[in-house]
């Protein structure tokens, strides 16, 4: 119940954040612009609308997750609002989970708005809406949950600026981790072990990317879906556990 109270307060805080609306506006603008772009595209414009729409939802979701997520804890510490919370009978991990859930609710609400925009565009442009589109959207949301957990983890022990840089780096490397494994194969044993360690430590965010499947109508079964869900949720849970351990030991000076 206390986690819910903190989550709803965080959601309310986010709703009063101007940055959120600016990002949402640009996301909808990009999704809508696919109508215009499709008119000047030769060949299959369905692909372009789906690709641009899903990419917009993904990109702007990640931007919100990072730029709101990094301030989630550090802002509370900087503004000293955390003093009145930690002195109440609330374990620190509950506070952290509440903040995390608040941002996930915000991301969910944003994604719903962006998805509504995409569905309208798909409907207007007569693009068939398959179950793969929804699977892809679900995995985008899962990716946002992992990114948010990364942002929260960094923001428990470093400044907002450094958290943003680190989280952005994890996002970029997370999408290139397939290349990292390929690269490791060409190295000597010791270097291979080091690069492989990085590969297995960082999240493999390409697992959450179904845009290729949607565009090329490739099958992504329920077993694959369940496995990916389990991977994403476990990864996010592990990050939050780590964040809680760090947060528990921290002095709020």
């Amino acid at each position: 119940m206390r986690i819910l109270s903190i989550a709803l307060n965080t959601f309310r805080e986010n709703l009063r954040e101007k940055l959120l609306y600016n990002l949402l506006f640009f996301a909808l603008l990009m999704i809508g612009s696919s109508i215009l772009l499709s008119r000047i595209t030769l060949g299959d414009y369905h692909r372009l609308i789906l690709d641009l729409g899903l990419a917009s939802i993904n990109l702007f979701g990640v931007l919100i997750a990072i730029f709101v997520g990094i301030g989630l804890v550090s802002k509370e510490v900087d503004r000293k609002t955390i003093y009145t919370i930690v002195s109440k009978p609330i374990p620190r991990y509950e506070f952290l989970l509440g903040k995390y859930c608040g941002l996930v609710i915000t991301l969910l609400a944003n994604t719903v708005v962006m998805v509504a925009g995409l569905l309208i565009v798909l409907q207007v442009m007569d693009v068939p809406i398959t179950s793969l589109v929804f699977k892809s959207l679900a995995l985008i949301l899962l990716e946002l949950m992992v990114i948010t957990a990364v942002a929260v983890l960094f923001s428990t022990f470093t400044s907002a600026t450094l958290s943003a840089i680190f989280t952005l780096a994890v996002y970029v490397i997370g999408h290139l981790s397939g290349d990292l494994k390929e690269f490791a194969r060409k190295l000597d044993d010791v270097s291979q072990m080091a690069v492989n360690a990085i590969y297995y430590t960082l999240p493999n965010l390409e697992r959450f990317n179904l845009k290729g499947h949607v565009i090329h109508h490739l099958d992504f079964g329920m077993a694959d879906m369940a496995l990916t869900l389990a991977y994403g949720l476990t990864y996010a849970a592990f990050l939050l556990l780590l964040a809680s351990v760090i947060f528990q030991r921290r002095d709020f000076q």
């Binding site: 003093y83 930690v86 002195s87 030991r249 002095d251 709020f252 000076q253």
Partner: peptide, 8 residues
């Protein structure tokens, strides 16, 4: 702060 559990 020590008494309130903010620092150890």
């Amino acid at each position: 702060k020590m008494l309130m559990g903010l620092i150890y």
